[in-house]
Computed example of a mutant assay.
Amino acid sequence: MSETPTAVSAPPPPAPGAEEYLALAFANSAVALPGGHFMDFLGTPEAANRWLTEHGLAPADAGVREMCAAQLRSLREHLRSLLAARVEGLPALPSALAAVNDALSKAPTAALLYWDEKNGPYRAAPCPTDQILGRALATLAANAADLLTGPDADRLTRCGSAPCNRYLLRHGRRHWCSTRCGDRARAARAYARRTRGQEDSSAQRDSSAQADSQEKD
């Protein structure tokens, strides 16, 4: 099935857990929609810059370029691979683990020494413009690691309403990321029941007709 990019002006509501874990919001930044369409909030440098800004990971004037947006999209796919492995109980792909660990290593490990004219020396973590992406990647990777290794990992699941591809933290028996997906899943089940009932009735009529024909013979 082909996928057609869709305008990103009307994002769906956050999936359950996405406001608690930035990594979930990041993984869900590409959304599959009915009809073979999808929304990618990292699809262009401008969109990626906007997403980072909205989530407190970069200033509005960061000037994200395509190379940076591509790195974000790559990390997102590796993270989705790890989420899928956790949900399905499968081994993680080594390449996905390596990508997340590489992103984690981009975080500064030591505060640098600065000197204020009035207050004298002090230490603070560096944040030059060329490290904005590295900090964003490290923050997202660290949050993903916290999710996958923490107690909430047992609640992690994928939306049960096809074709939606978003992940969420399950509350009770709910397996849908939004009311819209829940309504679509219920409608699909109702349609399947009606179709199955019609097929059963048709088969029963055919069987009765065949039995009547045999009795006449």
Score class of each variant (00 low, 15 high):
62 A>P: 03
76 R>T: 00
33 L>Q: 01
77 E>P: 09
32 A>L: 12
59 P>L: 14
59 P>M: 13
73 R>W: 00
51 W>P: 00
34 P>Q: 06
40 D>G: 01
32 A>D: 15
68 C>K: 12
31 V>H: 11
33 L>P: 10
62 A>Y: 10
56 G>S: 12
48 A>V: 08
63 G>Y: 12
77 E>S: 01
31 V>E: 03
71 Q>E: 14
64 V>A: 14
66 E>G: 11
71 Q>N: 10
31 V>L: 00
44 T>G: 01
78 H>P: 07
46 E>R: 03
48 A>M: 06
43 G>M: 04
34 P>M: 10
31 V>A: 08
40 D>T: 02
50 R>S: 11
65 R>Y: 12
45 P>S: 13
36 G>I: 07
78 H>T: 09
55 H>T: 11
47 A>I: 04
69 A>N: 04
54 E>V: 14
45 P>A: 00
77 E>K: 04
31 V>T: 02
53 T>K: 04
64 V>Y: 01
47 A>F: 07
33 L>M: 06
46 E>Q: 12
34 P>E: 04
78 H>Q: 07
76 R>M: 06
57 L>W: 12
60 A>R: 02
44 T>N: 09
51 W>Y: 03
37 H>R: 15
59 P>V: 14
63 G>S: 08
75 L>P: 07
56 G>D: 13
45 P>L: 00
42 L>G: 02
38 F>K: 00
45 P>W: 03
66 E>N: 10
67 M>K: 12
72 L>W: 01
44 T>D: 09
69 A>D: 00
61 D>S: 15
51 W>L: 01
43 G>H: 04
78 H>R: 05
47 A>Y: 07
36 G>F: 05
59 P>E: 13
68 C>S: 15
65 R>Q: 15
51 W>D: 03
51 W>S: 00
37 H>L: 05
77 E>L: 07
57 L>C: 11
64 V>G: 02
48 A>E: 06
74 S>L: 01
59 P>S: 11
61 D>C: 11
51 W>N: 00
33 L>F: 09
62 A>W: 08
44 T>A: 12
48 A>C: 03
75 L>D: 01
46 E>H: 09
43 G>W: 00
36 G>T: 07
45 P>V: 02
40 D>Q: 03
53 T>Y: 11
52 L>K: 08
60 A>G: 13
71 Q>F: 05
53 T>N: 06
38 F>Q: 01
71 Q>M: 11
40 D>E: 04
71 Q>T: 03
41 F>G: 06
62 A>H: 07
52 L>S: 03
50 R>A: 14
60 A>I: 13
32 A>C: 06
54 E>I: 13
38 F>M: 04
58 A>M: 11
36 G>L: 02
74 S>V: 07
34 P>R: 07
37 H>P: 08
58 A>L: 12
37 H>C: 04
62 A>L: 02
57 L>Y: 10
73 R>S: 07
74 S>K: 06
42 L>Y: 09
62 A>F: 07
50 R>V: 01
